[in-house]
Every structure is written in C-alpha cells, then in structure tokens.
C-alpha cells in the first residue's frame, strides 16, 4: 500500500522535530529514511504508526487518511529498534499476539511465519533465551504476521553485531520482495540505506532534503548536506556556484590541472585516503587503490577531475 505524508509538523517544546515534512512512497517500495540522530526520523515513524500526534499535517495510507486514528486501527505494523518483544510471552505467543487480536490465529500460520524467518522449532522459547539476531527475526515475524500492507522499521539492524548486519539486511530485502510489502526503514547508516532500499529519503532539519534512488542521491546530491552526509563529498566553489565532487573522481598524480600539497594520508583497508590542500586553501580528499603507492605528506602533487564529475548543489 502506498504511503503519503503531507506537511507534517511536530515540536517538542521549543525543539522542532518535523518542519513541514512531505513524503510519497509508492506501494511495494522499500524506502530508507536516512538522517543523523536528532533529525526527526524516529519521530516521523512514531507519527506514521500513530504513537504520537502530529501538530499539523496528514498521513494517508493506501489513499486513506489515518491521521486521527489510534495505532490499533492503522493498517501498518512497526518493528521496534529494540524489538519490544513481550518478555512474559513465548516466541509463539509473541508472533500470535496480533493474530489473536484480529481473530485470525492458527498455529499453522505461526509455524509458517517462524519458517519464513528461519526459526522453526523455537516456539516455546522466551525472548530472553534468544540471541540478538533471533530476537530480531521474531520481531520481524510478529510484525509481518497480519500481512500488513505497510511495515515500519526503526533501525532494524542497529542492535546487531557488524557481522550479522549484512546477512540480515539481505534477508530483509528478500522478505520485502516476497511479501510485496511497502517497507519504510529508518536508519542513520548510509551504507545500509544505499544497499537495501529502492528509494532513499535524506532528512535534514525536519524536512526531506532529497528523495530518490540510492544511485541518484549518491551521484547527484541535491544539497550540500546530502552530498556531505553520503560519502564525505568535497564541496568546491566554482564560477557556476557550489558543487560536490566525490573523492573517487579526483585523480592525484604528477600531472593535472590543480596544484596541491598532500596534508596527510590514511589507510582504509581497500583504499588510501589522501587529504590535500590547493594553493587557494581548499581542502580536497581523494582516494587511491590500496595497491598503489600513496604520495608522502608534504609532497606537491597535481589534481585533476572531469568537468562532468562536478555536481551543482542548490543550497
């Protein structure tokens, strides 16, 4: 089901969490809402789910206005960051909870859901007896139990070990495809957002700074904030105005068009990061393959880039 958020406003006292935020998510899309902590992304999710009232604006799910409805009556399900599994209920009863409320409980349905997330046979366990990854999957199965047309995920991978994160992310993606559910995932991790989502909405100061495909937001950032938040872009002043320039588009070598001095270098595993300063004082970062020999700090180098790599920014 599609989700439409119209001019949402929310203040907490003097703090402005959402400032006229609008968003359009077509049915069946995996949207990642990306923002720094405090950007209002969790508030947005809580307002869509109905846990918090908005000060102004509307929420439409599947074209229907749900703004005034309590969480129980909204056709969406939420997966909480810390999972919010009921500690006094078994895995089976946790997953069955929503089904029982709807009167559609059957043991077979719960078994199917457990199989879907790869936890068959763990029915009788309590949440405290599961690993973090298993808890995450129970939370997912519970949220998917009633086949919600819209699933809201609050930092679904944040509580997992780094090793589990990639595999679980791929699992989320697979489940989203299989169930044809609209996913709205909130995250502060740009890699996660770029890797999993069909669409990425970057939040800044309570509004959507840009909403587009991962390739688009990375390659053509609309604002300086988006450019810097995704992949540490260089910002340079050109006669045509402010532009973003990705580090990987800057060539460092004995020949080029812009003279610069190497400030320092840092090893990042698969790459070297070279921080340079041009004659006019602009700081620029470039990356070199780890296989190549990096220039030493203090050395004068020449930088060059293609004009097409410059992305004009609107603000």
């Amino acid at each position: 089901m599609s989700l439409r958020v119209e001019a949402l406003r929310k203040n907490f006292g003097a703090a402005r969490a959402l400032d006229g935020l609008s968003l359009e998510v077509p049915a069946g899309t995996f949207l990642a809402v990306l923002g720094a902590s405090g950007s209002g992304k969790s508030t947005l999710l809580r307002i869509i789910a109905g846990f918090e009232p908005a000060d102004a604006g509307r929420i439409l799910i599947g074209g229907e206005d749900v703004t005034g409805l309590p969480p129980q009556r909204r056709p969406c399900a939420m997966m909480f960051q810390s999972y919010a599994l009921f500690p006094h209920l078994s895995v089976h009863e946790n997953i069955a909870y929503g089904l029982r409320r709807a009167g559609t409980y059957s043991a077979a349905r719960v078994s199917d859901l457990l199989a879907l997330v790869g936890l068959s046979g763990l029915d009788a366990r309590r949440p405290a007896q599961l690993s973090g990854g298993q808890q995450q999957r129970v939370a997912l199965a519970r949220a998917l139990a009633r086949k919600p047309p819209l699933l809201l995920l609050d930092e679904p991978l944040a509580a997992l070990d780094a090793g589990l994160r990639a595999a679980t992310g791929a699992e989320l993606r697979r489940l989203q495809r299989e169930t044809q559910t609209t996913f709205v995932m909130v995250t502060h991790d740009q890699q996660e957002a770029l890797a999993l989502a069909d669409q990425v909405a970057v939040l800044h100061e309570g509004r959507v700074a840009q909403c587009a495909s991962p390739q688009e937001v990375y390659a053509r950032p609309a604002t300086r904030f988006v450019a810097e938040f995704l992949g540490a872009a260089n910002i340079i002043n050109t006669p045509a105005g402010l532009c973003a320039l990705r580090p990987e588009h800057i060539r460092v070598g004995p020949t080029g068009t812009v003279p610069a001095t190497v400030q320092h270098i840092a090893f990042r595993g698969e790459t070297w990061v070279i921080a340079c300063r041009t004659a006019d004082g602009t700081a620029l970062r470039s990356v070199l393959s780890a296989q190549s020999a990096p220039p030493a700090p203090g050395v004068a180098v020449m930088l060059s880039w293609d004009a097409a790599a410059l992305v004009p920014l609107c603000a």
Partner: peptide
Amino acid sequence: RMLEDAAADLGAAPATILRTITLPL
C-alpha cells in the same frame, strides 16, 4: 511504554493491552 505501543500496533485495544501486557508485567 514501548511494549504497550507494540501491542497497540499489533491491534490490541487499550483494555486488552492492560490485561495481556501491562498487568502480567
């Protein structure tokens, strides 16, 4: 409030939340 929020999200009415989540906890 998170567990009660989760129950509401799963379709439980306030009285049901009180009975099935809040009271046992």
